[in-house]
Amino acid sequence: MGIVGAGVALVFLLQNAPDLSITQFLVETLTAILIALVLLQIRNIGPVPSGRWLDKAVALGFGGVVTLLMLGMLAQPMSPHLSEFFAQKSLPEGFGRNIVNVILVDFRGLDTFGEITVVGLAGLGVWALLKRLRREERP
């Protein structure tokens, strides 16, 4: 998953969206750290019993439903109305030529603030987990 996330971040970077790319790299890095910390704690639980057919069926069912929904959404034609709106309004109302930046900062500023908050909280969570692990390692 981390490699896919890094690939998406590189696509953002190649498409001249460095702010999205940095956010994606930060989230991927923090996610990898959190997963590694969780896996360090899980090793003491013991072997996971195999043969949970109900769990497998439910997971496969939900995955199939989500896949079908996404394929159905992707099959719909995209309306150019939003693209045209943002292209027309970015310079006169947002005072910027980079449409993606104007959308993130001016039109969706609260959403961007929310993303920054999520990244900050994830960082605090990683810090707290690392601090806890250090305390448990001390004799």
Results as ranks from 00 to 15, higher is better:
Met70Trp: 12
Ile103Tyr: 08
Arg132Asn: 09
Val105Lys: 15
Val8Glu: 01
Val38Met: 01
Phe25Asn: 00
Gly125Lys: 05
Ile22Gln: 02
Gly5Gln: 07
Leu68Thr: 15
Ser79Ala: 10
Leu110Trp: 10
Ala32Thr: 11
Arg97Ile: 08
Leu37Val: 00
His81Ser: 09
Leu74Ser: 13
Phe86Thr: 13
Asn44Cys: 02
Leu34Val: 10
Leu54Phe: 00
Leu10Val: 08
Ala36Gln: 00
Ser79Cys: 05
Thr31Leu: 05
Ala6Met: 13
Ile99Phe: 01
Asp106Val: 15
Ser21Trp: 00
Ala6Thr: 13
Met70Phe: 10
Val27Ser: 09
Arg132Asp: 05
Ala57His: 00
Arg108Leu: 04
Asn98Lys: 12
Glu84Pro: 13
Asp106Thr: 15
Leu110Ala: 13
Trp53Asn: 13
Asp55Arg: 14
Ala6Val: 12
Ser83Gln: 15
Glu137Leu: 09
Arg138Asp: 01
Arg52Cys: 07
Leu104Phe: 05
Leu129Pro: 09
Val102Gly: 04
Leu60Met: 08
Pro77Phe: 04
Arg108Pro: 06
Thr31Phe: 02
Gln76Asn: 06
Arg52His: 11
Ile35Glu: 02
Val100Ser: 04
Glu93Arg: 15
Leu74Trp: 14
Leu133Glu: 13
Lys56Cys: 02
Phe95Asp: 12
Asp111Gly: 12
Pro139Thr: 04
Glu115His: 15
Asn16His: 10
Thr23Phe: 02
Ala87Trp: 08
Arg135Asp: 04
Asp55Lys: 14
Gln15Lys: 13
Gly64Cys: 01
Thr117Asn: 09
Val48Pro: 04
Phe12Asn: 10
Glu115Val: 15
Ile116Pro: 09
Leu68Trp: 11
Gly46Arg: 00
Ser21Pro: 09
Pro139Cys: 00
Val27Gln: 03
Leu124Phe: 10
Arg138Trp: 02
Ala57Thr: 13
Ala57Ser: 02
Pro77Ala: 00
Asn16Phe: 05
Leu133Arg: 15
Asn44Thr: 10
Arg132Lys: 14
Val66Asp: 01
Asn44Lys: 11
Gly123Gln: 03
Val66Glu: 03
Trp53Gln: 08
Met1Leu: 05
Ile33Leu: 03
Phe62Leu: 13
Gly109Cys: 05
Leu10Arg: 12
Asp106Leu: 02
Pro92Asp: 00
Val105Cys: 06
Phe25Val: 13
Pro47Phe: 00
Asn44Pro: 06
Phe25Leu: 12
Asn16Thr: 07
Ile3Glu: 11
Leu130Thr: 12
Ile22Ser: 02
Ile3Pro: 08
Ser83Lys: 14
Leu133Gly: 08
Ala59Glu: 03
Phe12Arg: 11
Arg52Met: 04
Val66Gly: 08
Val8Ile: 14
Leu30Lys: 05
Leu133Met: 06
Leu20Pro: 02
Ala75Leu: 05
Ala36Thr: 07
Pro47Leu: 00
Leu13Met: 06
Leu40Met: 06
